[in-house]
Amino acid sequence: MIEFMSIIRAIFGLALLPALASAASQPQQLSAIMTFESKVLSSEGVEKQTRFQERFIRDGRNVWTVRLLPAGTPPHVHQAGDHQHKHDTNFVLAAKWIALDAQQKAQLKFVRQETKTIITPRTEEFAGLGFDGSWEHAAYLLDRSALQQMRVLSKPAPAGCQWYERSGDKLYTRVLWDQAWQLPRQIETGSLDGLSFNRISIERRPMPATMPWRTLAGYRAVAYEDLLD
C-alpha cells in the first residue's frame, strides 16, 4: 500500500487538486484484494517479473492494508539482534493502518500481529515511510479529480466503470475507475517502448466480520523513533 502510494504520486503528481479530498471524504465500506504486478526487460536480456497481493479494507474513517502471503512463503527472517537493541524497521509485512483523527487528519500506524505492537511515527516521519499524509490517496488510492485531466478511452469496461489514460513522451498511465466503488479496478503504467510494465488490479471481497482495527486490544504502543539507533 505504502509503496503503491508512491507509485500513485509519481503518476499523478503532488500538486493536483488538494481541495476535493476534504469535501467528499466519507468513502463507503469496502474490502478488496490488490494484486501488484511488474515486468521489466533488462539490457542483459533478462525479463524480471514481480507479483504480490495486499488486502485492502476501508470504512469512513479507516484504511487498512496488509500483505497476503501465498502458501509456501518462507518464514520472515529477523535480523540478528532484533531482540536485543537493534530493531526491525522493515514494515513490508506489518499492517498499515491509516485513520482520520478528530481534526480530520490522516494518521499512519503500523500494526505487527506477530509482536502485538502498534508502531506510531511522527507526522513529519510519514513521508519518509511512504505516506504523503493524504486521506484522499489512502481511501481512494488516487486523487479522484486528477481523472478529469485524463483522456477517456472508448475501451470496453464493466458497468459503472470507465477507462482513463494519460500519455507522455515515454510513459503512459491507464486507470479503470469504478464510480460506485469510488476506487480504481485497475491501474496500468509502463513505458511506451514496452520494456517496463506495472499493473495494480483490485478485486472486491466480502467485508470481514470484525474490522481489523477493532481487534487490537492488548497491543503495545511503540514510537517509530524507538526502533531507530
Partner: peptide, 15 residues
C-alpha cells in the same frame, strides 16, 4: 528494490 529503475534528480516527491 526488487527491480532497479531510472532515478530522477528532482524533489517533486520522495521517489
Amino acid at each position: 528494490k526488487p527491480v532497479r529503475s531510472n532515478l530522477l534528480e528532482g524533489d517533486a516527491d520522495k521517489s
